[in-house]
Amino acid sequence: MSALAEILMQASFWAAAVRIASPLILATMGELICERAGVLNLGIEGIMVAGAFTGWFTVYLGFGLWTGVLVALLTGMAFGLLHGTLVVPFGLSQHVVGLGITLLATSAAYFAYRVALPEVTSPPRIVPFPPLPVPGLSRLPVLGEALFSQTALTYLAFASVLATSVVLFRTPLGLALRAVGENPAAVEAQGLPVIGLRMGAVVAGSGLMAVGGAFLTLSAFSSFFFEMVNGRGWICIALVVFGAWMPGKALVGALLFGAFDALQIRLQQAPLGREVPYQVFLMLPYILSILALVLMSRRAGVPAALMVPWRKGER
């Protein structure tokens, strides 16, 4: 147990937790925006893959890192437009379309990678976002390294939580978004565009998901390889539930998951790791996340009209 306490004391552990949480935070906010408007977006996993690829490829071609982020964002928005068109105006099953988008986006990204780089054996690297210490704050003990010595995309992730929260709860647009996920008839009765609001939420949310994917290639691993998203999208779906559809609580959930993941890596290297198969440690974050979900989540926050298609003039 002293090994555990030792790990928890390290600033580098907390820095790793925040780093691991960053893509989850971005994509979770994207999913939360979609779901608040009443649309489940199971395309998240594939959209993250697509964002990871296009963001990386843009930089690989010689463009700037921020151009890569922008291209990832636009890629996500394009897949969001496709998902939204199928499930909002056409009212198709959100499960089926979402899984289809994930398959399509994942395969398209792998295909494009193979077509663009047919010869390579090891994934080419790019120069990723460098750490950007915040003057002053980065010298705080523990907190300085954990929170204020990260890359620009991590700060962007935290900013996305703040922005999501402010927009949802402080602006007319956010009010309309929350209402359209709860009772579209209430929005329709005020003459506001139900379809437009939902489409907008899906497109914007999908854009955020793709930026979350791009974090992996532009900030964490500096190259693109297959299976790199590795179920993070599905974790984000769970994080939205864990956070009871509240941005702040979802952020806590993402950080918690990041901490579990950082912990298991370190436990593998601890003396304990020689006795226990490493797969047990790999399972740890997921098992702990499931436990946390069971203990914490209440369905109370679920938008009442989530996954319910809206058709004008239908009784």
């Binding site: 709860e182 209430a186 009442a304």
Partner: peptide, 21 residues
Amino acid sequence: TLADNLTVLDNILIGTVPLLA
């Protein structure tokens, strides 16, 4: 045509303020 998860005030406000205000 009310949204259950919103307050009375928010329900009244929906649609009375321009969306992008």
